[in-house]
Write a protein that binds this DNA or RNA. Sequence first.
DNA 1: TAGATTGTTAATCGATTAACAATC
DNA 2: TAGATTGTTAATCGATTAACAATC
Lengths: 237, 237
Amino acid sequence: MYKKEISKAVINRLPRYYRYLGDLLEKDVVRISSKELSEKMKVTASQIRQDLNNFGGFGQQGYGYNVEYLHSEIGKILGLEKKYNIIIIGAGNLGQALANYVDFERRGFVVRALFDINPELVGTKIRNAEVRPTEELESYIKSNQVDIAAITVPKTKAVQLAMDLVSWGIKGIWNFAPTDLNLPKEVTVENVHLAESLMKLSYRLSSKQKQEKSKITKEGPGEAIKKEDKEDKESKS
Amino acid sequence: MYKKEISKAVINRLPRYYRYLGDLLEKDVVRISSKELSEKMKVTASQIRQDLNNFGGFGQQGYGYNVEYLHSEIGKILGLEKKYNIIIIGAGNLGQALANYVDFERRGFVVRALFDINPELVGTKIRNAEVRPTEELESYIKSNQVDIAAITVPKTKAVQLAMDLVSWGIKGIWNFAPTDLNLPKEVTVENVHLAESLMKLSYRLSSKQKQEKSKITKEGPGEAIKKEDKEDKESKS
DNA sequence: TAGATTGTTAATCGATTAACAATC
DNA sequence: TAGATTGTTAATCGATTAACAATC
């Protein structure tokens, strides 16, 4: 009865499979083989089959995978068959952007309310969700089922806020503040660290530039231009 | 002279090191050992030393690492010693949120302009950056040095937009549209897929719930409560 | 049936952790 | 100097890829 833990790498790839299958579904593609899908997604067919077989056999020998079935099965694995009530703490641009993002609701993530300390924002409505004063946060959580709290407040407030949220019963946190939240293991935290994403981009940009420069220095600019094609193959992102 | 490629896993960790070192710096911590840092960051000391030694020896035996020096060296590795000019295409909530995020500028990422097709947004200013009509995008790129273009337009427009941007000379793309951009290798794309992040959260929430349920079923609710402590140790995120 | 493609085992590759000599 | 901690090599662990028998 022992089921080995699914690796983080696999979980990270699941939403991407789900997205590609959703796109295929929209194009009315009925079936797809791991090989075809692997070419679209630029991964190996072997990896796709290995990943899926962590959860069961969804395909059929000689046929491949039924797109609609596989899409719906991955949806179930991802927990998308149920609705999630979300609140957003911090109704600035980012909080509002999240509340406005219609696509989340299509997947079952429904923003129920936003909270902010700024009295000017309180009372405004973003789609169906109202901005409430932060003082009401505790009582709101205690009298409504909240599955996920998105934190879009400044770094300085985020750590204390997260601890409060947990003490009021929140089990899922979507954290946009640029800090780690060290919370009990029964609380699930998913981080979106935009500044770190941007730094990864600058790392890659600047390391490509350094490569360029060293080539030019070594070969002279004339040579470097001739070799451009070859180099592209090496400097994959 | 051959230098082995830095692995993606290492690069992903660099910004986090940078953040922790920045925090230590603010607290006027002068030195730190890999062991101390590893406890704060919840990684192994071995990994920290291995990661750093991809780029050189920044520490000193018997002493550890000088916080200020290491912070600045990692900053250099990440390419943060130079300025990056950013434009944002799509001046909706998300685009505005990015333009408003003061912290980016502190790291050298300066938002110079936003672009939008909505005439009501055109002409408004977000901090120092003006919203311009999308028609001006090509000429703007061709007459200004733009290092990074952030894409915050809907999925349907993103792929064509990215191709245009590249044809106009853009080399770095920060993509927020829920789609992959297949661009030439010399273009660096960093993706932020919010919907996928949310799905990872729902996966983890729902798999924890399933574990709960199976325990309750197997043991009866009374037992399950008694075993809560033990279980926490197993269900790490 | 013959051909195609899965599910799965085995082989390879890479990343993490452990250990320790070097050295501040 | 003695103690501490790095830099680095070796051992372990895990993830990816290859291969192929099973089977639709």
